[in-house]
Design a protein around this nucleic acid. Structure first.
Length: 400
DNA sequence: ACAATGGTCC
DNA sequence: ACTCGGACCATTGTA
């Protein structure tokens, strides 16, 4: 393969090996569990129906069982039965919890195990995704046919699918991910003293935010407080409203507003960054990433409040998400070139926004780890350090 | 074929 | 009453 080949094209052609047996046995396991759940659900409902039909499920839950209607669907064509609603209904009845279990297993089976097996290329025995370079508004790549950027990771059952992604025989998988890159970019853009200090000292950023917002020492921050602080940090990156934050944290909107006020009291630099970024967007009609990619924001002066506020959130998020995308793409090109230059056989296989996955001959592992870390962390000089975490494994789920 | 709904990832 | 960063894809139900 020519060394000058486009980096993402090379990744598409390399593909990634999946353990077909593991996927197929997971699929059978899911199917068995689905049948068991189906029987229990139908027995409790007192009739057979299509659990995957929102319409039929809604009639069972809200008409037959008379469970409280939490919300209607967007186009108010029916009852919402989404995970939020079913979780809440689980307090009152055993059926919704079983439907949730059924849904998550059905998702894993249809979207992942079964679909991925069908995508194994007959000649290479590997899965070759497409990395689309001109799809997203922020400059991220996207992945399709299949999408390998949303392989499950959160749950135990989901990680069984991730564990089916394996290196070729005698090689090993290496994953390198940027730690908190968007918050580090927020520190860079804003110059906020607390945020900058936290990253200069490589502190646990969510624990630090918890300490600041709740006015406590980091040592006494509980896991629950840290979790709330994490939601707040994500909320800042996304330009989250008090409404959304209150929903995410299960608190009143008034409390959410107080959290946000406390945050900005401590992180004044962040507040200024947000205000300046929106102001500049109003003047120019666009926002720009660190490397000069523009995103136009035609609604930034709209008289429609929803549209305008959406544009304002976009104005905050795009420089962060888009710059992160710029930086990892530069690192990818440099790594691809460096592998060729150094005569390394290691291959870059996947990009998942802030993570790169490589397949590495065992003999090259130490060299490749060093090279990847160096090029990713040194991709661009910022006011705070960039940090990369490495994981090595026999598959994509297991680090050792 | 398309809209609506829901769910997976960063 | 509603708001809600960036993607891709499966299923149901209707046209």
């Amino acid at each position: 393969m020519p060394a000058r080949m486009l980096t993402s094209r090379s990744m598409e052609m390399s593909g990634i090996c999946v353990d077909r047996g593991r996927l197929e046995s997971a699929s059978k396991d899911f199917e068995r569990q689905l049948h068991a759940l189906e029987d229990r659900i139908h027995a409790i409902a007192g009739e057979t129906f299509n659990i995957q039909s929102h319409q039929q499920l809604g009639r069972i839950l809200f008409e037959k069982l008379k469970l409280p209607i939490q919300k209607k669907t967007k186009k108010k064509t029916g009852y919402s039965t989404d995970v939020e609603v079913l979780t809440s209904l689980s307090m009152e009845h055993e059926l919704p919890a079983l439907v949730l279990q059924y849904r998550s297993l059905a998702k894993l089976k249809s979207t992942y195990t079964d679909a991925l097996v069908d995508m194994i290329h007959p000649e290479t025995n590997r899965i070759h995704t497409s990395f689309n370079q001109a799809v997203t508004a922020t400059g991220r790549l996207s992945s399709s046919n299949p999408n390998l950027q949303n392989i499950p990771v959160r749950t135990e059952e989901g990680r069984k699918i991730r564990a089916a992604f394996v290196p070729r025989k005698g090689w090993t998988l290496l994953s390198a991910d940027y730690s908190q890159i968007e918050l580090r970019l927020l520190a860079h853009y804003s110059g906020d003293p607390i945020l900058v200090e936290a990253f200069e000292q490589d502190q646990d950023i969510h624990a630090r935010t918890g300490a600041e917002v709740f006015n406590l020492l980091p040592a006494v921050i509980t896991p629950e407080m840290r979790r709330q602080a994490k939601v707040i940090n994500f909320g800042i990156i996304y330009g989250m409203s008090p409404f959304r934050l209150s929903k995410e944290l299960g608190i009143t909107r008034k409390m959410a507003k107080i959290f946000i006020e406390n945050y900005f009291r401590r992180y004044e630099g962040v507040q200024h960054f947000i205000e300046e970024t929106i102001e500049k967007a109003r003047e120019t009609g666009k926002v720009t990433t660190l490397l000069g990619r523009h995103r136009w924001l035609p609604d930034i002066l709209s008289r429609n409040r929803t549209a305008r506020e959406f544009a304002e959130r976009t104005a905050i998020n795009t420089p962060l998400q888009g710059t992160a995308a710029d930086l990892i793409k530069i690192a990818m090109v440099r790594i691809h070139e460096a592998f060729a230059q150094e005569g390394l056989k290691a291959k870059m296989l996947l990009q998942v926004h802030d993570e790169l996955v490589f397949e590495v001959p065992s003999k090259e592992l130490e060299t490749v780890k060093e090279c990847v870390t160096h090029l990713m962390e040194g991709v661009y000089s910022l006011r705070v350090p960039l940090k990369v975490d490495l994981k090595v494994g026999h598959n994509w789920a297991e680090a050792y």
